[in-house]
Amino acid sequence: MAEPDSGRPLVRRDSDRGIATITLDSEHNRNALSARLRTELAAELAAAMADDGVRAVVLTGAGRVFCAGADLKEVGEQLAGKEPDPAAPGMAEIFSAIMEAPKPVVARLNGTARAGGLGLVAAADIAIAPEETEFAFSEVRIGVVPAMISIPVSVRMTDRAMTRYFLTGEVFGAREAAASGLLTEAVPAGELDAATDAVLDGLRAAAPGALTGAKALLGADGAEERGKAFARMAELSARYFASEEAAEGRAAFFEKRKPKWVL
């Protein structure tokens, strides 16, 4: 798919009856978390949280992929010497903005989620996906580790499931994701809208102040400790992305071949 017009937003926001829907709209790279997309996503999240007319946020994507994770092309360019956008928020800031938001965030998956995209799923308060949706912590297969996303994911998934999927990078389905705690619910594709609406109707029926207070009870107070953990994980992530294995993993990904370490 062709790259979008530079002037066209990669993230859009619409509102209906107290619900702001934020859509990742960067289909050309499978809604990857590029610096520009992260910047726009952070701005739209902040705007929704500041809007007194918004009760909750739905996070979704355009096209067949919810989010593919990091923009590997952009990562490669930066490692080759291109200066990163100093104003762009990092992954930690995006995940924190969702986890610490004063209003509930509901992830409504439109399709596949990989790597950093699973960080968005885990950071959301509620996550719903069609049963045919596929997931993978694919980091180890391109020579890096799921460092940043380990913080929100560890809050959701069982230890056994997280251990298996972090180590193997294998694809798993929505039913497995729901059983592990990563998803709230996996539903037939034709029931996705109804399942999401049922959650949103519940949020619309809640008193706004009580809704904020209830979310705070569920873990929003751990911001300081998460901030320290994210800082440690950022250093770890940077070290792995700069490694020789990661360079080979990116090359194999773009050349559509197996990395040299595959037996």
Rank of each mutant, 00 (worst) to 15 (best):
S15T: 14
S15D: 11
D16H: 13
G18M: 09
I19Y: 14
I19L: 13
I19V: 15
T23Q: 03
L24K: 05
D25F: 01
S26C: 09
E27I: 14
H28Q: 07
H28K: 03
N29S: 12
N29V: 13
R30N: 03
R30E: 14
R36E: 11
R38V: 10
T39H: 14
E40V: 15
L41E: 11
A42S: 13
A42N: 07
A43Y: 11
E44N: 12
A47R: 11
A47Y: 01
G53H: 07
G53F: 03
R55W: 01
R55Y: 05
A56Q: 01
A56D: 03
A56P: 02
V57G: 04
V58W: 02
L59M: 09
G61W: 00
A62G: 12
R64T: 13
F66G: 02
C67K: 06
G69E: 09
D71A: 15
D71M: 06
L72T: 00
G76H: 09
G76Q: 05
E77R: 11
Q78G: 02
L79Y: 07
L79W: 12
P84R: 04
D85C: 04
P86A: 07
P89K: 05
M91K: 00
A92V: 01
A92I: 01
A92F: 00
I94Q: 10
F95V: 04
I98Q: 04
I98T: 11
M99Q: 15
E100R: 12
A101W: 04
P102M: 14
P102I: 12
V105L: 07
V105I: 03
A107D: 07
R108C: 03
N110K: 04
G111M: 08
T112G: 06
R114F: 06
A115K: 00
G116F: 13
L118Q: 04
G119R: 05
G119L: 03
V121K: 02
A122F: 05
A122I: 06
A122Q: 07
D125I: 01
I126G: 11
I126T: 14
A127Q: 13
A129M: 11
P130H: 09
E131I: 10
E131A: 09
E132Y: 09
F135R: 12
F135A: 12
F137K: 00
F137I: 14
S138W: 15
R141T: 04
R141S: 09
I142N: 14
I142T: 11
G143C: 05
V144G: 02
V144H: 01
P146D: 00
P146T: 00
I149L: 15
S150C: 06
S150M: 11
S150V: 08
I151P: 01
I151T: 09
P152L: 00
V153G: 02
